[in-house]
Amino acid sequence: MTETLLVTGASGQLGRGVIHHLLDTLKVAPTQVIATTRDPASLADLAARGVTVRAADFNDKASLTSAFEGADRVLIISTGDLDLKSGKRLKQHETAVAAAKEAGVSHLLYTSMPNPEPVSPVLFAGDHYGTEQAIKESGIPYTIFRNGWYQENLFMSLPHAIASGHWYTSAADGRTAHGARDDMAAAIAAGLASGSRESKTYTLTGPQAYTVAEIAALVTEVTGKPLEVIQLPDEALTEGVKAAGVPEDFARIIVSLDANTRSGRINMVTDAIETLSGRKPKSLKQFLEANKAALAG
């Protein structure tokens, strides 16, 4: 029997990437794919290709249960609601897991983060850990993708750092193997379309882990612009990020990512992207070269 594959958050960058790889790389028939979003009009292009588009609101269990109806394998892409005080995102994910069980989904897939256990310094790690536990407790066979940090996340800090010549961080000598979002989307699409019944967890990373100083050296090599790394304590970095106009809660999240890097909890390098997708992941230098103009202005 041909399985129906469903992707939540299909209007987001990762969701669209996954669906692109399902249709164009893996040649999954559009009639086997369901794309869900809060605003179905935003996916008119996919509907025109024959993909089934359904409305789904993570704050409304009935809408999720209805959207998941008839789907064999469901990919829950974590939502973007990072309200640290309300626990909103974990509630949304738990609602989605319950809806999947109610709808009779046979395999559940989820985009998590590396090492989300309660000791993680990352302030939103609990959302992912709690979701992983809810999936395991549901009894539905699962695939968990623990996505490492995207190379594209560097757009949040590098343009300003390059322009000023100073990169402020509290990551010390911790390493990160940034991976390309599209490489992760290709791996996730392959896992979604695999038909695997086995419960597995994959950590998706780029091909090499670098310290901030090593990334800065690569940036200088590619752009020709000097970039000095300035290490700060977490508290001073938080105040600096806030002074740049970032709201306090988000500033604390940003700094918690540096603390996580410093702790060594994001320094792993895996071959999961190549194992799942059959393609070699893009290197950080390739990313910097491809985005030189956008990064360096």
Results as ranks from 00 to 15, higher is better:
G148M: 04
F124I: 05
P116N: 08
L154D: 04
S112M: 09
S112C: 12
R146S: 00
R146F: 01
Y142G: 03
Y150F: 15
Y142A: 05
H160A: 15
S138H: 08
V122M: 08
S112Y: 11
S120V: 03
P116V: 07
N153M: 03
S138T: 09
G126C: 05
S157G: 15
I140A: 06
S138Q: 10
D127Q: 07
E152F: 10
S112G: 13
G139K: 13
E132S: 08
S157M: 10
L158G: 12
L123C: 01
P159W: 15
F124D: 01
N147H: 02
F124V: 06
R146Q: 10
H160R: 15
T131K: 00
F155D: 04
Y150G: 00
G130P: 02
L108C: 12
W149C: 02
F155A: 14
A134P: 05
M113R: 03
S106V: 12
E117L: 13
P114D: 09
S157F: 13
V105G: 08
N153L: 01
S120H: 09
E152C: 06
F155P: 02
L158Q: 11
S138W: 08
P121N: 10
G130A: 04
L123G: 01
G148T: 05
P121H: 08
G130L: 00
V122E: 02
Y129N: 10
V122I: 15
K136E: 15
H107W: 13
Y110K: 05
M113Y: 06
H128P: 03
V105K: 07
L158R: 11
P116W: 06
K136A: 15
S106E: 13
K136P: 07
S138F: 07
S157N: 11
G139R: 10
F145I: 01
H128A: 01
T111P: 11
F124K: 02
L154G: 05
S112W: 06
H128W: 04
H107Q: 13
Q133W: 02
P116T: 06
F124Q: 00
T111H: 12
R146V: 00
Q151N: 14
E152A: 12
S138M: 09
M156Y: 11
A103V: 09
W149T: 05
D127K: 00
T131P: 01
V105E: 08
L108D: 05
H107M: 13
V119K: 14
L109R: 09
E137R: 13
W149G: 05
D127N: 12
L108K: 04
E132A: 08
G139W: 12
A125Q: 06
E132Q: 13
R146K: 12
S120N: 14
Q151P: 04
T131N: 04
Q133Y: 02
K136F: 07
L158A: 13
E117A: 15
S120R: 04
F124S: 02
D127W: 02
W149E: 05
G126A: 04
L109I: 09
L108Q: 07
E132L: 07
E132I: 08
L109Q: 14
S112N: 12
Y129T: 02
V119A: 15
H128K: 05
G104E: 14
